[in-house]
């Protein structure tokens, strides 16, 4: 495959792969429901985007430098666009408000390649999809995929009221076919869907997927406690990409890194990673998982106090190495000195 590509082309491709980030243009912004907008991302040159699977999300790098994760809601067979639906949160920490208020059609943004921690099972006899509010976004791509596969599913969709319900026309079509249930609680969860009833019976072969605000997920988890772990799939919103980064991005503080080879010091702002800052300054580091389990970015450090966020280095290794894709520094004043 590489044989037919020019070296320059290959270099560019490699750079994209290495960074797993690329630019997209906002093709359209459309109104889905009160405080919910859909953003359609396309390649600025009209090329195809990397393929994704139902349930996948992307990182969106906002103009402020903050990074937010959004599930893709379009049909995974579409290769020309990614679509995300974003609720403008009342207590927005800068992500949803920035998208709603600052971004216009034509704006270019940086996103990551799609990743999927919420994939559909390939061996289920029936899929149960439970969406709370904006948590419906990954479900929409799942519905498209399951419809194509012809696999049985039922979507339960809980929102406050019809005017705050994204994708209502599409979901009503499913309701008419008996494949979806919509419940509006008008602000009082007691009036909403009775999760205990929905989840009373676990039938082997059933797979449960749930996504929504934290309170909704906690309620589902309580009601589905008797379901086996391997039959449950959850996507939590409004937290950083992994449990490792469970601290809210805004709770992160900035810190400095210093390169032993050049003596240069760079500042890592809250919401950004060491790898981001190295890339910005022309220092290439190989990364792969970006979540601290593959070890590709393992880097020796010579001074400083890293806050390790990987899941693979042991106490002894942590005295010497740090996974720079996810690590931060405990010290705001003293730089983390990297042996690069």
């Amino acid at each position: 495959m590489a044989a037919v590509m020019s070296t320059d082309q290959r270099r560019e491709d490699l750079e994209i792969l290495a960074k797993k980030k690329f630019n997209v243009r906002i093709q359209s912004i459309s109104y889905l429901a009160e405080d919910i907008l859909a953003f359609e991302f396309v390649d600025p040159d009209g090329a195809n985007l990397l393929p994704f699977t139902a349930g996948a999300h992307i990182d969106v790098h906002l103009p402020s430098g903050a990074i937010r994760q959004y599930s893709l809601c379009n049909d995974p067979t579409e290769t020309h666009r990614y679509v995300v639906a974003v609720l403008r949160e009342v207590k927005s920490r800068g992500g949803s408000a920035a998208l709603h208020d600052e971004v216009r059609p034509g704006t270019e943004l940086t996103i990551s390649q799609p990743r999927n921690h919420f994939a559909l099972s390939k061996s289920a006899s029936r899929h149960v999809l439970l969406a709370g509010g904006i948590g419906v976004t990954p479900m929409m791509s799942m519905v498209a995929e399951l419809t194509r596969r012809g696999e049985p599913f039922h979507l339960y969709y809980c929102t406050r009221s019809p005017i705050r319900t994204a994708f209502l026309p599409q979901v009503m079509t499913l309701v008419e076919k008996g494949m979806a249930t919509v419940a509006h609680d008008n602000g009082n969860p007691e009036n909403g869907l009775v999760l205990d009833e929905v989840l009373t019976h676990y039938t082997p072969g059933n797979q449960l997927y749930y996504c929504g605000p934290a309170g909704f997920l906690d309620a589902v988890e309580a009601a589905a406690a008797h379901w086996p772990d391997e039959a449950k799939h959850c996507e939590r919103f409004a937290v950083a990409p992994t449990d490792l980064n469970a601290a809210e991005p805004e709770a992160q503080t900035g810190f400095d890194i210093k390169l032993a080879s050049t003596g240069e010091t760079y500042h890592v702002e809250p919401g950004r990673t060491i790898v981001d800052v190295l890339f910005d300054n022309g220092v290439d580091i190989d990364v792969s998982c970006e979540e601290g389990y593959c070890g590709t970015c393992m880097t020796r450090y010579l001074a400083g106090h890293p806050e390790h966020r990987d899941t693979v280095l042991d106490a002894e290794d942590r005295q010497e190495f740090v996974m720079v894709c996810c690590a931060r520094s405990k010290s705001e004043s003293e730089p983390l000195v990297l042996d690069i």
Binding site: T53, H117, D286, Y293, C294, V312
Partner: peptide, 24 residues
């Protein structure tokens, strides 16, 4: 395609990772 596949790192892989980084 890797998609979201990444190799898992084990403690015993330290030298392998460093060798790979040197060659990269």
């Amino acid at each position: 395609a890797d998609e979201d596949y990444s190799e898992l790192f084990l403690k015993t892989d330290k030298a392998l990772r460093r060798a790979r980084q040197i060659m990269m």
